[in-house]
Structure formats: structure tokens, C-alpha cells
Computed example of a mutant assay.
Amino acid sequence: MNEKEEREKALERYFIPVDGKYYETTREVYEVYYQMDRRERYLEERDLKKGIINFGDIDNDDYSAEEIISDKDTDIEEEVINKILIKTVLEAIMTLDEEEKWLIQELFFYGKSEVVLSQETGVARTTLQSKKYKAFEKIKKIMKI
């Protein structure tokens, strides 16, 4: 190599994009990165021509595309009914007095047993059980069950 080529080679700098910013790297890393990038674009173009869907593009925050497609047992009607029932039950709970709301919350939302709740509050377990059944009756009446 002559002196001019050596100076030009010393001035060559290579950059690759990472998270929207460009970072300087070696020539080897630069070449491998762009080979992989080109390969990925080639595969995407090939799939597009063949009509193959890239499931990575249809993922959402709640469920991946694979989960949506593989879940053949999903019954939309049943899901809607369950959501309506949950909404109705929550609305019925909101009509209870504060003590009843608190009891339902502790037992069913926080998963505490009547025994544990009795120990924490000093209220007899049978009293808590009685109050729970009264709250249930109010909820049933509101829901007209």
C-alpha cells in the first residue's frame, strides 16, 4: 500500500444505527450488521410475495398473534356475557354499605379467609360469615337472581 491509501484507510469510519442513534464500530461489525439487515429485508420481501403473514407485525399489548391464532376455544359470546356479569356484580357491590363492601373486598378481592379476617379484626368468624351471607343476599336482590 502506498502512503495515500494508508491515510484514506485510517480515515474510514463505520457507523451502525442502534435505537435511533449511530454508533461508531469496526469494519467487520459494520459488514456483518448490514449483511444481516439485508438478509432480513430479503426474507420479508420473499414472505410478502408468497403471501406469508409476519406474526410479529400483528402483536398487541394484550396478546401475541400466536396466542390469538392458537386459541381456538375462545367463545366471544361467553366472554361478552362474563364481562357483563362482572360489571353487574361490581355495580351491585357498590350499592352495599361500607362495612359490607370492605368485607367482600377482603374476602374475595384480597383472598383472605374468614378465619384470618376474624383474627385480624377480633370479630367472631361466625359473625363475619353471617355478614357475608347478608351481603350476598343484597347483591342477589339487586341483580334479581
Rank of each mutant, 00 (worst) to 15 (best):
T26F: 04
E66L: 05
E67R: 09
E91W: 09
S113R: 02
E99W: 03
R39D: 15
E12Y: 01
Y22S: 07
F109Y: 15
F55W: 15
N2C: 02
I53K: 10
D71N: 13
M1S: 06
E5P: 01
S70A: 13
E67W: 13
Y63P: 03
Q105I: 11
R125G: 08
E79M: 06
I16T: 03
K101N: 10
V123S: 06
N54R: 15
I53S: 05
V89Y: 08
S130I: 02
Q119G: 11
F108W: 08
N60P: 06
Y30A: 00
K21G: 01
R39S: 14
L107V: 09
I81H: 06
N2D: 06
Y63Q: 07
L48H: 11
E120I: 13
I16K: 00
T126G: 09
T74E: 09
E44N: 15
F15L: 05
A10V: 00
L103K: 05
G111F: 07
Y33K: 00
T126Q: 15
S118V: 12
Y14H: 02
I145H: 07
E6H: 01
G122F: 08
V115H: 06
I139C: 00
E31N: 09
R125K: 14
F136P: 05
R38K: 14
D59P: 00
E24M: 08
M94H: 14
T74K: 10
I52N: 11
E100F: 00
L117Y: 08
I86E: 15
R7N: 05
M143F: 08
I81P: 08
E8T: 03
I58H: 10
E114P: 10
S64F: 00
D75Y: 01
R39T: 11
W102V: 03
E45Q: 12
S70K: 05
T126F: 01
I52V: 11
K112N: 12
A10D: 08
T126H: 12
I76W: 03
E91L: 10
R41C: 06
D61K: 13
D97G: 01
K4E: 10
T95A: 01
K141L: 05
